[in-house]
């Protein structure tokens, strides 16, 4: 996992260096001597392989240095300070998606082809088609202004999390609902479900003990790529709801050409995504005994 992350960091470093512009340029002209001082301080006039080597030797030790734009703050400090915000929203959003999606999907599967199936599933289709940057203002309009129930933005207490979590999780709830419904229908048709019923087990036990594990397998496979996409989704949600999360900071860092911060976040995110995928693989084996690595 670590070598992969280092590779990603190297590629990112290359891309930042190739992109025109640098972190210290602004609309005002910088006196030549000052520019020289900056370049000397950061070793910007050294040959590229020397700069690369310096960067890598620090990165391997987990030292990303200071942010170039927010002078005096280290990259690690910035990441750990803002990660909890993104993580909270992301995890809550996915939990929301799981609860709503699994629930709605299971229910729709049980009531297949009735109005209670078509209703939620059409809503899901609708939910899939709405991008989160459209959903957000609509939710704000309804809940912050028509109903005066929730704050329109900013981090502060539980009520301020509700709209961002829904905005971020809605599309995944829709996906999961559809996947669950399909998975459940598939499983509920199985012979072993018939056997379970023939043993006198009630619907609830049949559903939860016998059908569930098989039915949610498609959702588990979905979780890997979904969590990666969720990370991207946090950017928009953080921007619109003014939450101090890592996603928004990452975008700003790129636009600011704040190389250490970009590299730090990229390294962190790649390890995170790889860890997610690993967990998903493991849980797959946990759920389906047929594919365990004996």
């Amino acid at each position: 996992m670590i070598p992969m992350a280092l590779l990603v960091v190297s590629l990112t470093w290359g891309l930042i260096r190739i992109a025109p512009g640098n972190f210290y340029s602004t609309e005002r002209k910088l006196p030549a001597a000052v520019e020289a001082t900056i370049r000397a301080k950061y070793g910007l006039d050294d040959p590229w392989y020397k700069q690369y080597a310096t960067m890598m030797s620090n990165v391997v030790r987990g030292d990303f240095g200071d942010s170039l734009k927010y002078q005096g703050q280290t990259v690690n400090e910035i990441i750990w300070r803002h990660l909890p915000y993104s993580a909270t929203i992301g995890i809550l959003a996915y939990l929301f998606a799981l609860i709503v999606g699994l629930g709605a999907g299971t229910y729709a599967a049980l009531k297949q082809n009735s109005i209670l199936d078509f209703g939620p599933m059409s809503l899901a289709m609708f939910g899939l088609s709405i991008p989160n940057f459209v959903l957000a203002p609509v939710l704000v309009m309804i809940f912050a202004f028509w109903l005066y129930a929730l704050p329109p933005a900013r981090w502060g207490g539980f009520s301020s999390l509700i709209l961002p979590v829904i905005t971020l999780g809605a599309i995944y709830a829709a996906y999961i609902a559809r996947l669950t419904r399909a998975g459940m229908l598939e499983v509920l048709r199985s012979d072993f479900i018939r056997t379970a019923r023939a043993k006198g087990l009630n619907d609830r036990t049949v559903l939860l003990r016998h059908a569930f594990r098989g039915g949610i397998l498609p959702v588990i496979s979905f979780t890997g790529p979904a969590l990666a996409a969720l990370l991207a989704g946090t950017v928009v949600v953080e921007k619109v709801y003014a939450l101090p999360g890592l996603g928004d900071i990452f975008i700003k860092a790129v636009l600011n050409r704040d190389e250490p911060l970009v590299l730090g976040i990229v390294a962190f995110l790649s390890i995170l995504i790889m860890a997610f995928n690993l967990i998903v693989d493991i849980s797959y084996g946990f759920l389906d005994p047929r594919i365990r690595y004996e």
């Binding site: 012979d191 056997t195 023939a198 043993k199 006198g200 003990r209 098989g214 005994p289 047929r290």
Partner: peptide
């Protein structure tokens, strides 16, 4: 009916490969 199933009336099915739950 469920109280009877499996207790007083039991059933076995054709394909044992699919009639047992692979996950349990």
């Amino acid at each position: 009916v469920r109280k009877l199933r499996g207790k007083r009336i039991a059933m076995i099915f054709q394909d044992p490969m699919t009639s047992l739950n692979p996950f349990l």
